[in-house]
Nucleic acid binder design. Structure first.
Lengths: 223, 223
DNA sequence: GGATATATTTTGACAGTTCAAAATAAATCC
DNA sequence: GGATTTATTTTGAACTGTCAAAATATATCC
């Protein structure tokens, strides 16, 4: 049985590998995702390699093995289903649930997970729009445009918010930027690094290009 | 913040202290409740004493301090509310939920606990009839008669089943012995160590005196 | 292409939790 | 009341996961 630390290493390795073309995760990125010093990550990755969960390519990084990926997807599935439960059933603030799920993901059994999944109606995404891995281990990693890159003026629907910090999520919610809500980009000022948005029947407001890059959107039908 | 090990030591110390008149818990009992060798318990209890969570009386045992009791009650509250959630909401088998709650009790925050408590309607007992400590830290430890000690013939209602083993709970449920159900003792044969029961519209069946001692009952009004 | 900056690994140490086995204290039993 | 049994504590060691800091590759930059 994987320890909590092992589950965390694998989960973060998966998240980083998803955002890298070749699946190679540099040691330093893993270390800072886990908030440990680089030497600690090296030590742990060697142990994971001995267990067959990752392949360690010295001085280059690590890759998940199929078994490591399987474990990581199971943890991620727990994390995201727990988040969904906390928001949809317990009506908790979506800005808080990430931290709660970080703990619960390691304590919940597969049996409980199945019941939770059924209770929630087998959701495809969590409250942030992050895709929930299936029981079979598939992860929908569709890539969308963001408010930093999408067309201006056209109506948009928010589909995902890729930042787990409570501050950012509280800000986003305060401006109506949750998955499912609609908005349009009225201006994008690259030199100033600003994107100006407008929600239906709302006042225009601005956010930084880097913040805008964390709001994923798709074209919306109605204006 | 208390570690998982610390929470477990305190929780078991509380459970053992409740069943001891003077609140003194012998080291060996604690060690076997936690499934560790006695030396380990000694080491840990000394550390807990240094943290002010217990008082260690060498060669006699330990006692919870008010602070240790507070932490233990919080863990026990989490355990029992989680069990209630798993049975009432997720419809899990009552024989399994103890093991699940052993993990979840250490991962659930006070914020989640409050929501869960509200969702469940502030229950007073868990599915086994074990009292749920209040947020304020009071624990109803009323003592009832058991099937081993109660009057015969009179109608009874099961109020509590004090055995967490899945086998026993499955057996009890199969015979309709869950809190809320009714039965009567039709015979008690002390030399043979047997108690014979009868459920309304059911066939008489027997169980051992020691098993009967784990089924707590109160007089029921209707026959 | 040698100097410098950056990333990674190695080394030694520590905290927490555990066990095995020896030592010690307390209780019990003729 | 001395011998024996039983409970507890001590001692020495192991394992997991971590850090600090030194050592070592690798990449980059004139």
């Amino acid at each position: 049985m994987a320890t909590i630390a092992v589950e965390n290493y694998l989960k973060h390795a998966l998240l980083l590998a998803e955002r890298s073309p070749d699946g190679l995760v540099p040691m330093g990125e893993l270390a800072s995702a886990l908030a440990v010093v680089p030497g600690t990550a090296t030590t742990m990755v060697k142990a994971l390699a001995d267990s067959g969960l990752v392949v360690h390519e010295p001085r280059r990084g690590l890759r998940l093995t199929p078994e490591g990926r399987r474990v990581a997807l199971n943890v991620l599935r727990k994390h995201r289903l727990v988040e969904t439960f906390l928001v949809n059933v317990l009506k908790m603030d979506w800005a808080q649930v990430h931290a709660e799920a970080e703990q619960l993901e390691h304590a919940i059994s597969d049996a409980v997970l199945d019941r939770l999944d059924a209770l929630l109606g087998h959701p495809a995404t969590d409250p942030h729009g992050d895709p929930i891995p299936s029981v079979e281990g598939t992860l929908n990693s569709a890539v969308y445009a963001t408010l930093a890159t999408c067309a201006t003026e056209a109506p948009l629907r928010v589909v995902r918010v890729t930042d787990q910090s409570a501050d950012f999520l509280t800000f986003a919610e305060a401006h109506g930027l949750r998955p499912g809500t609609t908005a349009r980009v009225v201006d994008r000022n690259l030199p100033a690094g600003l994107v100006t948005l407008r929600r239906p029947r709302g006042k225009p407001f601005a956010l930084s290009l880097s913040a805008a890059g964390r709001i994923w959107v798709e074209p919306a039908d109605s204006p």
